[in-house]
């Protein structure tokens, strides 16, 4: 069984092809193709929905051709087309969903609408082999501590205001760092040279976190701190990372202690930050636990994750009828009925 996955909820456009060999139990999973094209706005700016949607529309056909070529298959071999139903930005989502619908009609295939967050979780589980971990999902738009129970991915903790990736991206704009390959990546590289820790607000409420205070503080003080020579740009990046990530690791640990779990899986774009992975590893080691993480191919938004979550749902008999293939900007992780897990 082969699934095509189309993802474009934010500035990454991803196309993936995944194969589940159903003759074995559990099915043997092979990744046939995983291609991506990213929209990079100029330094100092974020990506706007309109421009991002235009980017996706301009590149999606060539990416699908490339994915089919990489996989050495034709559209006849595809069983199901999976696309991101939400959450995400409206314009980019609908531009990709339109392509999914068109292909389904042209090629006479079934459609499966996928929750983006569930896509990240299923991809992470598949790649790392983590069975039932506490999941930290961190990206530009999402910050959630999740665990599975009774057919749902339940949110134990989340950001009460802005997401961690958004906080990093916006600080990158203050420093005018390039958006290529990613603002967070450039902060990570700069932070390696930082040594001096700036005392930033630290806001943890149980398993929830709040980042807006930190962002306001650092945005309004950065200029003064840099001009006086008290801190370097590297020091500020370092301080921001150390503080944000300490909050994330703390709340993840709290969820692990509360549930009694020893495994933690990090997914989402911010999840490929090596410093975050390192800190999580140190936490897990102190509790006799284990961290699972993936690299940028699977952490950062991609088409494979949508194909993987979609094919799992499809195997339980789930499809999305044409009239229900609309997209939604707000689609909570815990709204999805996880029929494929016990």
């Amino acid at each position: 069984m082969i699934a095509l996955g189309l993802e474009g909820s934010a500035n990454k456009l991803g196309v993936g092809l995944i194969k589940h060999d159903m003759t074995t139990s559990p099915p043997t999973v092979t990744i046939l193709a995983n291609v991506r094209h990213t929209y990079h706005p100029p330094p100092g700016e974020g990506f706007l929905p309109k421009d991002t949607a235009l980017h996706h529309r301009s590149h999606i056909v060539e990416l699908i051709h490339q994915a089919l070529a990489d996989a050495h298959i034709t559209h006849k071999d595809i069983d199901v087309i999976c696309f991101t139903k939400g959450p995400g930005m409206g314009g980019p989502l609908t531009s990709v969903a339109t392509v999914a619908r068109t292909l389904a009609l042209m090629w006479n295939k079934e459609l499966v609408g996928v929750n983006h967050c569930v896509g990240h979780i299923e991809m992470g589980r598949q790649i790392t082999g983590a069975e039932n971990p506490v999941v930290l999902y961190v990206s530009g738009g999402n910050t959630q501590v999740i665990a599975y129970a009774e057919k749902r991915y339940r949110i134990f903790g989340e950001a009460l205001d802005i997401a961690v990736g958004n906080c990093l991206d916006r600080f990158a704009r203050v420093l005018n760092l390039p958006n290529d390959p990613a603002p967070g990546y450039n902060i990570e590289q700069l932070a390696k040279k930082g040594t001096k820790l700036l005392d930033l607000p630290y806001t943890v409420k149980g398993m929830d976190v709040s980042f807006s205070g930190i962002l306001s503080y650092i945005e309004s003080n950065a200029k003064r701190l840099l001009e006086s020579g008290e801190y370097t740009e590297a020091d500020l990046c370092f301080s921001l990372q150390e503080t944000l990530f300490a909050m994330l690791v703390e709340t993840t640990e709290r969820a692990m202690a509360h549930i009694g779990s020893r495994e933690v899986l990090i997914v989402g774009g911010v999840g490929c930050n090596m410093r975050l992975q390192e800190m999580m590893g140190q936490m897990a080691e102190q509790r006799g636990g284990k961290v699972f993480a993936t690299d940028e191919r699977f952490c950062i938004d991609n088409g494979i994750m949508i194909a993987q979550a979609g094919i799992l749902a499809y195997q339980t008999g789930y499809t999305t009828p044409m009239e229900k293939t609309w997209c939604t900007q707000r689609f909570r992780t815990d709204e999805v009925f996880v029929a494929w897990r016990d």
């Binding site: 959450p87 995400g88 967050c117 990240h120 738009g141 009460l160 900007q329 909570r332």
Partner: peptide, 10 residues
């Protein structure tokens, strides 16, 4: 309501 807003981009 504030908490629920957080199901946006990814």
């Amino acid at each position: 309501l504030r908490g629920r807003k957080r199901s946006m981009l990814g």
